[in-house]
Design a binder for these strands. Structure first.
Lengths: 149, 149
DNA sequence: GTTAATCATTAATAAACTTAATCAAATTCA
DNA sequence: TGAATTTGATTAAGTTTATTAATGATTAAC
């Protein structure tokens, strides 16, 4: 068996393991966010993610649509709701009046601080159940994935 | 700095890295599935996941609702569509006539073979861009996550 | 300067989800 | 036993959230 065949089996196995673990872990985290965001703050998980992206600097409808992989009108509608709820606000770019910049209001930031803080602590508690080796392997491999995203 | 503090920083960093990589990677894979499933076979990504779970043995409405974290009526409706499309079929359990087992038809299996095969190959190609160390770290860490799911 | 492209939105509609109610079957227990 | 409860699935009605097509406003291209 040569190196090519060995590494090929390695990759196939990695893909199998991916499907066993990756989706359920993501679902578990989404469920926790739903618990906090919906039950305590009455915003949907999708709205949470939109706020999260805006906070990280994806502050236009087009960028949000691209990063969330849904249509611009859909984002526009969600943004509208978040504006009405006083969590974000729009500002027209003077340089190019087609661009509308989105930013979190003080309320929006406070809400995100609360949800992110809660979720983060919950995740830290979860991750803390793993060994140092396991954490390091996770961090290392996640970093490596940035190359192929 | 003692071990506790070091490992705490380690965990916090892992959570940060998680948010940088995990959601975009998942979105990228979902986008690929959408490309194949929707464009070539005209089923939604959610329908693909339902078929995937049925194929893996989650063959009741309740199990699917639990694993997908949505209501049973929602699953029931999706299942109905998949039955109409001839991709799955229902069988009543003789032992307990409340239970209705779901299974893929020959068409359903063929469709899943096509989509899974395509997606799997695409993922293998993606993963193959990583080094052996990186793949092994990923597999190791994903395996370790099974403990906390 | 007219045409084309870009960014965001509105309008109309469709898909997918929710809760509440219903039905059928099995289980519990007074 | 048999009445009440539980369980699994579905139906019904209504809400949310997405889509496509069309519109408005602004900028870029030729």
């Amino acid at each position: 068996m040569n190196a090519k065949v060995r590494s090929s089996g390695l990759v196939k196995h990695a893909v199998d393991v991916f499907w066993e673990t990756y989706p359920p872990l993501w679902r578990m985290i989404q469920a926790h966010i739903r618990e906090v965001a919906v039950k305590q703050f009455n915003i949907s998980v999708d709205q949470f993610h939109i706020l999260r992206h805006i906070r990280r600097g994806r502050n236009s409808v087009s960028e949000l649509a691209e990063v969330r992989d849904i249509s611009r009108p859909a984002i526009s509608q969600s943004v509208d709701l978040l504006v009405i709820r006083g969590l974000i606000f729009r500002t027209i770019d003077i340089k190019d009046r087609r661009h509308i910049k989105l930013d979190l209001t003080a309320d929006g930031n406070a809400l995100m601080d609360a949800i992110s803080g809660d979720t983060r602590q919950w995740m830290v508690d979860k991750f803390a159940q793993l060994s140092v080796d396991e954490i390091q392997a996770f961090t290392f491999s996640m970093d490596s994935f940035k190359k192929i995203i």
